[in-house]
């Protein structure tokens, strides 16, 4: 083994330089040259200040906003410095309690909505930072937003449609609505 220590040491150093320094630097160089916006976090600038990232959700609990997926990050929801899921098992009583509380909050914010609540709106996302909800979850909330903001329902519906992405390339993933961008567009409309 001793005979192999010298080549082992030299190889470790050389491959560290190659894969630990040159490789990430090369990727960073190409990324910043070709896709600077994406490489820096897809940040949204509004009125001269940073209003968020198009890929990172924010917490909304005000009835005049669309609400996103419940977030299990601590100490506050949507903590993008410490991502986390709930990790609650399917039979954990804490899961049932959490989902019931979310159902109650949604119904309290809009008692007139009698449709079934889409499951993604009351279950915590994997990252705690999910920027999206399903189109069904947006449609469920649209009447509340329209009433709260004094807007016709079809205007709100049109805005939701604008911020709905279909399956990528028509096939991949799921259709989804970006909650932060939708809410920013709602706020911009008022001005």
């Amino acid at each position: 083994m001793l005979k192999e220590l010298k080549p082992a040491f030299v190889m470790l150093m050389a491959l560290t330089v190659l894969t630990g320094i040159l490789y990430p630097l090369l990727v960073t160089g190409i990324a910043q040259a070709l896709f600077a916006d994406a490489a820096n976090g897809s940040l949204i600038e509004q009125n001269g200040k940073l209003a968020g990232s198009a890929l990172i959700g924010q917490h909304f609990s005000d009835p005049k906003y669309f609400w996103g997926r419940p977030s299990a990050t601590g100490p506050m929801p949507y903590n993008a410095a410490a991502s986390s899921g709930s990790n609650l098992g399917p039979l954990n009583p804490a899961l049932e309690a959490a989902v019931q509380a979310r159902i109650a909050a949604l119904k309290a914010a809009d008692p007139s909505q009698i449709e079934l609540i889409p499951v993604d709106l009351v279950t915590a996302s994997a990252s705690g930072l999910d920027p999206h909800i399903s189109p069904a979850a947006a449609a469920w909330q649209a009447p509340r937003i329209a009433r709260q903001r004094g807007l016709p329902l079809d205007v709100v519906g049109g805005l939701v449609a604008q911020h709905t992405q279909g399956r990528q390339l028509g096939v991949l993933g799921e259709a989804r609505v970006n909650v932060l961008q939708l809410n920013l567009a709602l706020d911009a409309m008022r001005r």
């Binding site: 049932e96 989902v99 159902i103 609540i117 889409p118 499951v119 915590a124 996302s125 189109p135 799921e174």
Partner: peptide, 27 residues
Amino acid sequence: LFERLGLATQASDLSAGGNMEGKEARF
């Protein structure tokens, strides 16, 4: 549990349905 609590869990083009606890909407 989700059906017992009265949630919409059917899969469609507008919603993934199923067990969405701990999953991301885009996936």
